[in-house]
Design a binder for these strands. Structure first.
Lengths: 207, 207, 207, 207
DNA sequence: GATGAATGAGTGTTCATTCAT
DNA sequence: AATGAATGAACACTCATTCAT
């Protein structure tokens, strides 16, 4: 009984994710969402205040999942910061890939006005970023990562990179293998584009 | 006479950029654009087919400028691939920072439907990416950059990173100095997050 | 058992009266009525056909009470028509004041569409008016009231006056004492605004 | 040109009055108003903020006209208070009869929520009532009208009476002649229902 | 009987676009 | 060319009413 309700609420959210991801938030019609969810148009409003609320929930769920995954990782022992970084990227990546609708929404719904509410402190969005930030700071403290980098900015750079790569992956005709994407992200995040040797020895002057 | 026309067309585009960047595409009102441009609402349609066309033009101009800047760089001699990469990032960065409206649009207007038209082959968007891609491939050929990376994906990763960083910069209260942003991008793009020494020597096992 | 039912039916009507009087018919929500009555939303429809029916019942009850009060008065002996008129006004007034919800409804819910059904002949509304009309006609027959007046119109004038006065009373900040209202009604109904002496002697020409 | 605009604005208001008066405010459809006015649905909003604004304008116009008519009367000389009262009732009556749509609206749209805005001080509604109130007070000062009456309440009684009488007139099948209505109002307002002689001599005890 | 979740018809309002002037 | 008044399609949301439980 109470399970059925949860199921219905869930199916509406899934339908919304599907429609948002394929049409974008502004072109998504509530009627379409209702149709896909298999409920009457008015029923959506029994569970969600309005269209915006649907998006908020979707994104919040996403950040929550991400936070929970990263949280375990953060407090785990037996990995050095570099391994944790690798793992974090993997988690971020896997979470995104797991549900392509969410990925598309994450990728696309960046529009200015769609973010105001989620920046409330201690939203999962912030929890995620704070946790990840601290992981990087620890890596800096133990000498793994250069101290001159700002942890928050670093995080944004990497997550932005991942986002665009997935955008590319999701929209490209000839599907790029996910493993290629994954490896690319790992290399670039950890080593950057420049060959490590050059980074240390410097560039040979006769080139 | 013909100059006056060009001026008016230009001022409309500038107004559109201003409004798009502050409200987002979907909340931007044509009436507001006309008002800011100082023209009648109907006049916009003398120069641009519709709202979408305005956005297309803005983004196209942006990619054109970017392409032209990168083009010179690409064919220039006297720089090694690493220096060119650095310079390219600088160009990308500077071009974005130059006009904050455009940056905000570049950052936000990712919505699915807003991109279909621009992927036409030989748009400046593609020209830019092709050129940049070739630069990276040259770097790989000459051993500067690891061959295992896909040039196109690399490019997307970096541009996505830059985008998110600038988003962060544009929306953060306490303005982060642009130089910090710039340096962060340079380091991460070229060296990644992991300290180069570890990248080569490997991680000490006793950590 | 059957009493419990009557009680529930009653409480729904009371709740409806409360909500109608505070929000007006069109802004009254069935859900709110159900909540105040302490029943489920669907239960209302076990007792009343629809929203309109609730209003009909409320008003019908009101006219019924009024009719019953006036009926006794009409057939009573020992009062002259003027005294009966006075008494009738008093009854009308007291009935209205007794339940302020009903008053507000009587005062406000005049909207065209809300009346069609109630004009069915031999509704209590009509019974009340017929009885009151006859009282006035008797007064005319016995010379108390001027014969040139139409009894029905007279009645409407007076009841309209009372209605507006009560509206005034119900909405005014600084509560006007009910006695003042009552006295005003009595004087104006019986003597009008003009000082009786002038009415007979005529107006002195030198004013 | 500017006249055409005024004409269009006017025609929309007239259409609104027509529809409001026949359906009531809440059942009036904007689409219907537009259709009757012969304009597109959106055009209404070029001239009026919303549906409520239409009603406000209609009623405000009505009170304005009424105020202007009463104002002249109030400051005129050569009439005693009783004559002025008579004249005022006539003006009120004539203004209402002049446009039956407005009358119906005046009669029906009393709903609680439809009045909030108009009670702003110095609206024409208030100006009208203040002016009329002063007329009555003058009549009391010069002994024409009984001092025990409150001028404001008196006014409300009379206007309420007129309203109901016109309601009656407007909805009755067999059209009552307007003259009958008018005379009824005059008599009742000035002399009340009781025969003036009785009012002075008292009621003979043997009745 | 009683419930309250589900429904979907219904509508005020917006705004990109057009076109008469 | 330039205007801005006019348009009308489109849509999120409400809420009286129903009906499965």
């Amino acid at each position: 009984m109470i399970d059925k309700k949860r199921l219905k609420k869930e199916s509406i959210l899934e339908a919304a994710a599907k429609v948002f991801s394929s049409c974008g938030f502004y072109n998504a019609k509530m009627a379409k969402i209702a149709e896909i969810a298999g409920v009457g148009a008015g029923s959506i409003y029994l569970y969600y205040k309005n269209k915006q609320h649907l998006l908020d929930e979707i994104l919040n769920n996403f950040w929550k999942k991400l936070y929970e995954n990263i949280e375990k990782l953060s407090s785990s022992t037996g990995m050095n910061p570099d391994q944790k970084l690798s793992r974090m990227i993997e988690v971020l990546f896997d979470t995104l890939v797991e549900d392509s609708s969410i990925t598309m929404i994450f990728v696309h719904e960046n529009s200015l006005d769609l973010w105001n509410e989620k920046v409330e402190s201690n939203s999962y969005f912030n929890l995620f970023f704070d946790t990840a930030e601290k992981m990087i700071e620890k890596g800096q403290a133990s000498g793994f990562f250069p101290k001159e980098l700002d942890a928050s900015l670093t995080l944004h750079f990497i997550s932005g990179g991942i986002r665009d790569l997935l955008h590319q992956w999701a929209t490209s005709e000839k599907k790029i293998p996910l493993d290629t994407i994954k490896k690319t992200i790992q290399i670039l995040s950890r080593h950057g584009l420049l060959h490590p040797e050059y980074a240390i020895k410097g560039i040979p002057s006769n080139t």
